[in-house]
Nucleic acid binder design. Structure first.
Lengths: 366, 366
DNA sequence: TTGAAAGCGCTAACAT
DNA sequence: ATGTTAGCGCTTTCAA
């Protein structure tokens, strides 16, 4: 890996100018076949790979789309992994075990699916994807760093403060994912959290006494969480119960916080139904109830929100509202691609449909 | 979004030179506080975001790691999604349904988990990740494109031909994931497919007649698939059966191909056990057997390989060999980070342990 | 069809 | 502490 080959090296070796080298790579037909071959040979011989930075600088575009999100839920305390350490050679290449309960990592979650969608669509459209995960940087370096390297940026709602977002969008198109629309400065893809939660709540209230329902809320600063509360409280009020009278517990969207909340409920008296602001917490609730010997749905109904995979596969299967996560990612890419083509088009807001999925956990046995 | 602000604009507005602007951003302490403030004000006022291309060119490094993989399994025929079309406004914001069977997209698969691992580790180490998914490009443009934009590249085994890989590694460090080690030119992270498959096979042979076992192989060009076959055949021979006598069916790692293979088996006579080269195919086999009223594990044992999530959650739960997918991704990033620090270190090969997970599908009922 | 030369926007010596 | 300047490696007019 001596010194990296550049256009100059290739040009010299092929006996042509750097302009010709560039042409061979960009518009091969503009070069005489003989010349082209000579250049291609030199390219191969030198292992020449064009510098993306130089090209990006000269072309003033990169062909890369950025996706930025806040940070990892539980993965922040991912276990240490040190493959570079000693003692590798002596380790066994496999072990045998009876089905171990859950590994050290969480299952596929919201972000993974959004990412998958973005990948698929970027791939279809011929873009490359750059992924940045926020760290606790005061100066918001990471997101700016990414913004400087891409043609367009997708950000998860609330992962970036408004002022930073405003500045970034001065440089490149920005698409905001989910959450409440933020004015109409940016392109936006969202879902109708409130409407779906209201409907889901109505369904539950058909089976459970509105006065004995507990709402398990998300973190106070989550816009999605807030919208879900809005939908819930609207439905409860419509059923003739003041929202203030409902028991509200607050979690942080993690499974563990759901377990804790359920333990509190057990202490205070098991409710008729628990409506959680996301699946993870709902699953935690079910965990804790099971441990305590309380049956779902026999003794208490439970619902979630998001539609992660684990919700479909839990026992009992969890009633939830499925977000079109993959399509959210895809839509964001489409919006970005569109704006890159037509920079001056009006900001567009796309609202994707949610799907309420009724399953065992909310269906009182006959 | 007039013209993008550059260092020159900022410098002019702040009444300083471009060098000072650059300093304020790179080494703030080297600038007098008053000056720094002036510059920062100008930055904010102009919405200045440094160009990653220019910076990368000048610094000769980007801080980005690349991850390249072949293409999407089944997602190539992902359904059309057109969010930009008409009629959006009138669409309902949600729908209600009883638990729908499987959506249009596959569950979280091998690649998704590897990706997650890479993300986590890149995040920990302060790198940004660039993801490229291969298209059927003759000139291998995509991977070269990525290689030109990153400081180091991770590729999935067999997703890139040897000659291309060799060329790329002339420019930047390359880490190859999984599969058989390719000489010792690159850093490498792999697993011992053969040993684990041999052990798994032995376990199955303890319950099923070796003469009545079917091996469901992967595509002929998969090195992982080949290694799994090696392990299987070794175990079978050790049991006193010539490998040639074993019935071998070939699939392409998809669930559908597993279903087809099972249908063939049903026609030819249901075997005592099916050992599949990956989980997807094993799940397909179970699908088809269930449809035909053949019980797993009562009538036939089935095992997979990979340890994807769906394997743990299927009915019956699938015996498999769990790959440390997340750790594979993390290890690759660690290897890359190490090499960027010490470019001349000897190529390193890390072998991660597999875990054989015995579950219902291979456990003959008492 | 090919070459010469002027940027693209930034960093990092080197001067001051 | 700040300014000047020479690249970094490529694309793209404009000429020849």
């Amino acid at each position: 890996m001596s010194r990296r080959a550049t256009v100059y090296d290739v040009a010299e070796r092929a006996g042509v100018s750097i302009a010709t080298v560039s042409r061979v790579l960009r518009q091969p037909d503009a070069v005489r076949p003989v010349t082209r071959e000579r250049v291609l040979d030199a390219v191969a011989a030198l292992g020449y790979v064009p510098s993306g930075s130089a090209r990006g600088l000269a072309e003033r575009r990169t062909g890369v789309l950025g996706l930025y999100f806040p940070g990892f839920d539980a993965s922040e305390d991912a276990p240490e992994l040190d493959v570079l350490g000693e003692g590798q050679a002596s380790a066994p290449t496999f072990t045998v075990a009876d089905d171990p309960e859950g590994g050290p990592y969480p299952a596929m979650l919201f972000l993974d699916e959004v990412l998958r969608g973005a990948e698929v669509e970027a791939w279809k459209q011929g873009f490359v994807l750059m992924i940045g995960v926020g760290r606790d940087d005061p100066g918001r370096e990471t997101v700016r760093d990414i913004a400087g390297r891409v043609d367009g940026l997708m950000v998860l709602a609330q992962s970036v403060p408004d002022d930073v977002l405003a500045r970034l969008s001065q440089r490149i198109p920005v698409v905001v994912l989910s959450g409440a629309p933020r004015g109409d400065t940016y392109d936006h893809v969202s879902v109708d959290n409130a409407a779906a939660m209201a409907e889901l709540t109505r369904t539950v209230l058909a089976e459970a006494d509105a006065g004995r329902v507990v709402f398990l809320a998300g973190p106070a600063d989550s816009p999605d969480g807030a919208q879900r509360w809005d939908g819930f409280s609207a439905a409860v009020e419509a059923a003739g119960i003041a929202a203030e009278r409902v028991t509200v517990l607050r979690g942080d969207f993690t499974r563990a916080s759901g377990r804790r909340a359920a333990e509190d409920m057990i202490t205070a008296g098991v409710p008729a139904a628990v409506i959680a602001a996301n699946d993870q917490m709902a699953l935690g609730v079910i965990d804790a109830f099971r441990t305590a010997g309380i049956g779902v749905p026999q003794d208490v109904l439970v619902t979630g929100f998001d539609g992660i995979e684990a919700a479909a596969l839990s026992r009992p299967a969890l009633t939830t509202v499925r977000q079109p996560m993959i399509d959210l990612g895809r839509a964001a890419v489409q919006l970005l691609a569109r704006r890159l083509e037509r920079p001056d088009a009006d900001p567009m807001s796309v609202r994707l449909p949610l799907q309420i999925v009724l399953r065992e956990s909310s269906r009182r046995p006959d």
